[in-house]
Deep mutational scan, measured.
Amino acid sequence: MSIQHFRVALIPFFAAFCLPVFAHPETLVKVKDAEDQLGARVGYIELDLNSGKILESFRPEERFPMMSTFKVLLCGAVLSRVDAGQEQLGRRIHYSQNDLVEYSPVTEKHLTDGMTVRELCSAAITMSDNTAANLLLTTIGGPKELTAFLHNMGDHVTRLDRWEPELNEAIPNDERDTTMPAAMATTLRKLLTGELLTLASRQQLIDWMEADKVAGPLLRSALPAGWFIADKSGAGERGSRGIIAALGPDGKPSRIVVIYTTGSQATMDERNRQIAEIGASLIKHW
């Protein structure tokens, strides 16, 4: 067993022997301040990774656009098919120029040779490549099948209805392509620590998230040296922004954090800054 596999296998073990965790309302004060600064709703939840206990939450059962955070769930569904012998990570998928959609920095470079399922998941999570996500959605049967996968996990809230990039439209009061912070946090925890996926697939999923290259201005910008984070960000229309993450000190994750916002007129930089400040408060009061 590799060191990384050992780390993920012992996530519940280490967490069980940690000192009790206590909620700190100071972080919620910052979440509410972010709402004021952005002029928009902000949803927040913080779960203990081992027990699933909610440590703090704000608007945990209000719907927010998922945006690209759905790509972690998508690759979880792909990995479940791999575990069941219905898919192979090494299978190569070929596609054409007509398949390319807006923001496809990886797939646009491989029109000639195609990409493997493993490479597509890596591109979808680490670079948020939209064509990679659409190609992977095709392998599982489309958005409705991802929703069905989530329902089978016990998540009857999260739903995907459309493809990239239309799913980022974020129309107010439109339930399409949305989740709730509580539902997303619980589902992410199941994917990373539950028995739904094999140990190898859980490790692969967290490795992809740990290698995320496009979430630097968010929670990662607030992390002290030595902290662990595996995350996936999302951005959408109407001032929408979000991030889902597993993080913790001492090089291992111990909490799940989900943050979503929508309806702001603020710039992307300002949305990023507010999420980073929430992260800084979380870490300060850990």
Rank of each mutant, 00 (worst) to 15 (best):
S104V: 04
H110N: 06
R241F: 03
I244M: 14
K30W: 05
N50G: 09
R220M: 03
A230S: 12
S254Q: 14
N98E: 06
L135T: 11
D177M: 00
Q203P: 01
R238Y: 15
I45Q: 14
H156W: 12
K71S: 00
M153V: 07
V214W: 06
N130H: 02
K53N: 12
N168I: 05
L219A: 03
R59F: 03
A40L: 05
L223C: 05
L218W: 03
S254A: 09
D113H: 07
K144M: 06
L223I: 07
L120V: 05
N130K: 02
S96P: 11
S122H: 10
Q97K: 10
G279W: 04
P60G: 12
S57F: 12
S122N: 12
R59A: 05
R91S: 12
L150P: 02
K190V: 15
L74Q: 04
M268E: 10
L120Q: 03
D161E: 10
L219S: 04
R162F: 03
F64V: 05
G234C: 14
G239Y: 02
I275W: 03
I93W: 03
L160T: 13
R202D: 03
Q86Y: 15
A133M: 00
E26V: 14
P143Y: 03
M66E: 02
M66V: 08
L111S: 09
V78N: 03
L49Y: 13
P181G: 04
K144F: 07
V214F: 06
H151A: 07
E166I: 10
L136F: 00
S80V: 10
S51P: 03
D161C: 06
G114T: 04
C121A: 11
H285N: 12
H156I: 07
I275T: 04
E270P: 04
T261L: 12
S201H: 15
S80A: 09
L47K: 05
F58G: 05
A246C: 09
E169R: 09
G43Q: 00
E195P: 15
V157A: 07
V29L: 12
G234I: 00
T198C: 12
I256C: 13
R41G: 05
A124F: 02
F70H: 07
A148I: 12
V106L: 15
P25W: 14
H24D: 08
N130D: 04
G194Y: 12
R273D: 13
V258I: 12
R91C: 04
F70A: 15
I93F: 09
A132G: 05
R118N: 12
N173P: 10
A133L: 00
S51Q: 09
V117W: 02
L192P: 00
M180A: 07
R176S: 11
A183R: 13
S233P: 05
I171F: 15
M268Y: 06
A77N: 09
K284M: 06
T126E: 09
G251I: 08
L47D: 00
T261G: 04
L74V: 14
S96E: 12
A183L: 10
T261W: 04
N50V: 09
A182N: 07
L160N: 05
M127P: 02
F149V: 13
P181F: 00
N173M: 08
E108S: 15
N134F: 02
G142L: 00
P217Q: 13
R189Y: 06
P253Y: 09
V42T: 12
T262S: 07
E46M: 12
E35N: 04
G236R: 02
S122Y: 13
T193Q: 13
R118T: 10
G154A: 11
V101L: 08
A170D: 08
A183P: 09
A276I: 09
L100I: 15
L191Q: 04
E210M: 13
A200K: 15
G90A: 14
L111A: 06
H24K: 10
F228L: 06
S80P: 03
